[in-house]
């Protein structure tokens, strides 16, 4: 399963909630404001690390660049729209609005 998260962790608990339903082998993709969770040094980095100990976490690079997210937390994998498409082709998708 591919879980996409488009909300900032600073205003929503969407990422935490999505992670609770991520089975072994499921991956999480941060898009839009969701990519704000991928910034290294933020207060959410430990929680992100904890999620990454169980599930792969990707972030949509165009959204990160658009927001000037800059330094990315170690372990987060970056994809472009082509990579996004590949992830959807590989997994059924659940969008966490």
């Amino acid at each position: 399963m591919l879980h996409t998260v488009n909300k900032s962790p600073f205003t929503h608990n969407t990422l935490t909630e999505a992670a609770r339903f991520a089975t072994k082998g499921s991956v999480i993709l941060l898009i839009e404001d969701g990519t704000l969770a991928a910034r290294s040094g933020s207060k959410h980095e430990p929680a992100l690390k904890e999620i990454m100990s169980r599930n792969d976490v990707y972030a949509l690079e165009p959204d990160m660049k658009a927001r000037g997210v800059g330094s990315v937390a170690e372990g987060v994998k970056l994809v472009d729209y082509d990579g996004f498409v590949d992830l959807v082709a590989q997994h059924k998708t659940n969008t966490w609005l």
Partner: peptide, 11 residues
């Protein structure tokens, strides 16, 4: 953007 990428990849 997703749809454009999907089309270009032949989906």
């Amino acid at each position: 953007n997703f749809v454009k990428a999907a089309l270009s990849k032949g989906h």
